[in-house]
Amino acid sequence: MLIIGELINGMYANIGKAIKEKNKEIIKKCALEQINAGADALDVNCGPASRKPAEDIVWLVEAIQEVTDRPLSLDSSKPEVIEAGLKALKNKSIINSTTADQDKLDKLIPLAKKYNSKLIGLTISTKGIPQNKDQRLELAAMIVSSCVEQGYPVEELYIDPIVMPVNVAQAQTREILEAIKEFKIISEPSPKTIVGLSNVSQGAIARNLINRTFLVMALESGLDAAILDPLDRELLDAAITAELILNKQIYCDSYLEAFKKK
């Protein structure tokens, strides 16, 4: 599973403050902590409070690139912010994200092609959040066909089913897991799948337990990637063990440690 660390987000108080005060050390430390814990890539989000996100994302990218060459996932709903980040980026990139709306797809797929970037496609549109598996599949199919039409390699595309908090949309969770399974049959080669994990436990008390139980179930459904908190040791250990049980990793007594040597 591709692990994208979620902690560099202006929504968090320490990062928001660092962005405001232009304190690179906090950003660099947060980047390294996540990588040392097992993140393959890092999400970068200026947060809702940022007044000049196109400038802030460049500053964040530059700070992070001083300490790592891992891929960065540029997280914004504004294509111009993503493009500003892409221009500053030397590392590999992930565009986070496009929706299933045609105007977004027409802006972001060409950007992904131009910058040789992976692309996250959310199964959401201006019409609203999908309510069941079929609506998710329909939106995913729109994203996939747009990629095919524009000559973007589908295996670089990560479809996100939009995870809903289990405390408000309990009936949806099963639909989401099934959607993860069925996204794979939309096309050959199949798109990959990704979730923004912590949404599932939004507003709940036992957040860590809900996160890791859902992640294990999603892995069983064939999930390829997740944006999550890599510092949650129990979460990562559960994911590593799930991959072991699914025969995706070869067993050895120190298999948790083997993961760190990847």
Binding site: I250, Y251, C252, S254, E257, A258, K261
Partner: peptide, 10 residues
């Protein structure tokens, strides 16, 4: 194979 992996880690 499991011992091969384990020994390499050790």
């Amino acid at each position: 194979i499991n011992i091969a992996k384990q020994l390499n880690i050790l």
